[in-house]
Design a protein around this nucleic acid. Structure first.
Length: 570
RNA sequence: CGGAGCGUAGCGCAGCCUGGUAGCGCGCCUGGUUUGGGACCAGGAUGUCGGAGGUUCGAAUCCUCUCGCUCCGACCA
């Protein structure tokens, strides 16, 4: 591609509304353009990268035996009503009506559609297993879209769905996808981790997330420093371990704690270690309030309480709800005398003489003890894992890092097949529910994650497999005939050798061309200038390492081919 | 959903408090000089000041409503 024929509007300044590096650079490099909050156009350069990611995903899905199809963006409401998600999915589901007043939604994921397709064509165990996938635009009306392609409302996703007759078969399908995912992210040149995850709104029995490690990641990844265990913080197990305190039981004492809302305040006022204070959090679990006790120095994990109770939604109660059920204001809730089911994190059972809220304004209680002063419905692992916690699988310690979730695979089981009656007849002629799995990859997010992981102060640094162009030829002075001719000739030869090349043939000053080249981050840059042309040489510079070398004109094409082939082979 | 902030030229911003009919830098167009890391000189074009209503002789500026966008929070016990 010739720069002068291309559409590549780069920006010198960083647009004000971009916060993270990948978003800023994509805007500056003219890869994307925002049309509304969380809704973007892919400009030519951006689309090239998207296509690269798609192609790697497609190749690996095909290799793993999945078959490509394409489903509609507009989904009829009936299927969503049948699965129960029309009501359950909430405001994230963008709904609309057609001219006849029929309800539709923009597909945020396609379990309903694919299950409908499969149930109507699959009748016999002989037709299974099958795994169908698509690469398609999804729409989720996110509460807060942000960070460019990282969390858009409209985004491109690869979603695959497997259908099996047996548990073993379903596990095999899951395993194949897992392998395929590892290959995909390796081929993309990303540093990633596969972690155990909570299955969230999609549902199902177990799942793994693929996290690209980056500071700006929205997810916290817990991993063990000595074994391979890794999990999303929502899922990471906390070992139930401790020694029951032996201190004598103190009497309960009412203490005035004026204005003390936080554990830190209370700790100071009562002169108690935060680990001796117990927070009482009121949580609405499927609209029913429950109390959850967490040690003052720990953090509540809403996903864990939700899963413990087999609920579908858990959220912190509002100020009004708290006052209604505890009789006291926010910040002063406590378990004593509370008429709610009380769930407590395991750590609480080892405490004696706790400090808790008094369920009235400016009052806390000291010397509170289990059984004597209140009883707990059930103890469980209800807190977030933290750095330094022991690993449940070995003697190691947890460390935490941040990650960007680029892929997520779920073993669904029969959740959708049961609800939507997707059954098959087995060898004995008995009707059974099909066992499903589903597997997603955020295509745009993967591209953005790559930028988060690979950039410097000058711009993006594309790994060859994702690069929009493999080589950029910078012709320093196109008005000089010898230089221009040399550049054109090199361009022609590269095209002939199927190298993806961008020829910067603009009549601009060198500085502008170099700055743009660094911004766009094409891995291999060849500079054709008057000095080199006179000697029959060009300069080769790698964007990643910055290595620069002078190469005879005669060797440059084979040298580039060699480097590209080597990078793509791995 | 709660909180905060911002909408003025393609981009980045100033002007608003204290009302008088819009400006700076970059970019863009023309001509010239330049040409190995975002050049210089001269000339030029570009705005329903997000929208609607109100106050006023007069509104980018004050008031009301509205739309859009961004950030933070949703861990508060």
């Amino acid at each position: 591609m010739r720069y002068t024929d291309y559409f590549l509007p780069t920006l010198k300044e960083t647009p004000a509304d971009a916060e993270v590096v990948s978003h800023q650079l994509m805007l500056r490099a003219g890869m994307i353009r925002k049309n509304a909050a969380g809704v973007y156009s892919y400009l030519p350069l951006g689309l090239k990268v998207i296509r690269k990611v798609e192609e790697i995903v497609r190749e690996e899905m095909n290799r793993a035996g999945a078959i490509e199809c394409l489903m509609p963006v507009a989904n009829p409401a009936e299927l969503w009503q049948e699965s129960g998600r029309w009501d359950y999915y909430g405001k994230e589901l963008l709904r609309f009506k057609d001219r006849h007043g029929r309800d539709f939604c923009m597909g945020p994921t396609h379990e309903e559609i694919i299950t409908d397709i499969v149930r109507s064509h699959v009748k016999s165990y002989r037709q299974l297993p099958v795994n169908l996938y698509q690469i398609q635009t999804k729409f989720r009306d996110e509460v807060r879209p942000r960070f460019g392609l990282m969390r858009g409302r409209e985004f491109i996703m690869k979603d695959a769905y497997s259908f099996d007759t047996t548990e073993e078969g379903a596990n095999t399908s899951y395993h194949k996808m897992r392998e395929a995912y590892c290959r995909i992210f390796e081929r993309c040149g990303l540093k990633y981790r596969m972690v155990e995850a909570d299955s969230g709104a999609i549902g199902g029995s177990f799942s793994h997330e693929f996290m690209v490690l980056a500071e700006t990641g929205e997810d916290v990844v817990i991993s063990c420093d000595s074994c391979s265990y890794s999990a999303n913080i929502e899922k990471a197990l906390v070992v139930d371990r401790g020694e029951r305190a032996t201190a004598a039981l103190n009497p309960v004492e009412r203490v005035v704690t004026k204005g003390a809302h936080t554990v830190a305040d209370v700790s100071k006022m009562l002169n108690l270690d935060p680990a001796q204070i117990v927070k009482t959090m009121i949580v609405m679990v499927d609209e029913t309030p429950v109390a959850v006790l967490i040690r003052g120095d720990h953090e509540l994990n809403l996903a864990k309480i939700k899963n413990l109770l087999g609920a579908s939604v858990s959220e912190l109660a509002t100020v009004e709800q708290i006052e209604k059920v505890t009789g006291g204001p926010v910040g002063f809730s406590g378990p004593v005398g509370l008429k709610l089911p009380i769930y407590a994190d395991n750590a609480v059972k080892y405490l004696r003489n706790m400090g808790v809220g008094g369920n009235e304004k400016d009052i806390h209680l000291e010397g509170v003890n289990l059984e004597r002063d209140f009883s707990v419905t059930r103890f469980a692992d209800l807190r977030n894992a933290a750095a330094g916690d022991p690993c449940p699988h070995c003697g190691g310690r947890y460390v935490n890092t941040r990650g960007i979730e680029v892929g997520h695979i779920f073993k669904l089981g029969t959740k959708y097949s049961e609800a939507m009656k997707a059954t098959f007849l087995d060898a004995e002629g008995k009707s059974k529910d099909i066992i499903m799995g589903c597997y997603g990859i955020g295509i745009g997010r993967t591209a953005a994650a790559s930028i988060e992981q690979n950039h410097d102060e000058h711009g993006m640094i594309w790994p060859l497999p994702l690069a929009p162009f493999q080589v950029q030829v910078v012709v320093l002075n196109p008005k000089d005939d010898a230089v221009r001719t040399a550049g054109e000739e090199l361009y022609r030869q590269l095209l002939e050798n199927k190298v993806e090349v961008l020829l910067d043939d603009r009549d601009e000053r060198p500085g502008i061309k170099f700055k743009d080249a660094d911004l766009i981050g094409v891995p291999l840059r060849v500079t054709v200038g008057a000095r080199g042309v006179a000697e029959g040489t060009v300069e080769l510079k790698e964007r990643a390492g910055g290595e620069q070398s002078v190469v005879p004109m005669a060797d440059i094409v084979s040298r580039l081919k060699q480097q590209i082939d080597a990078a793509l082979a791995s």
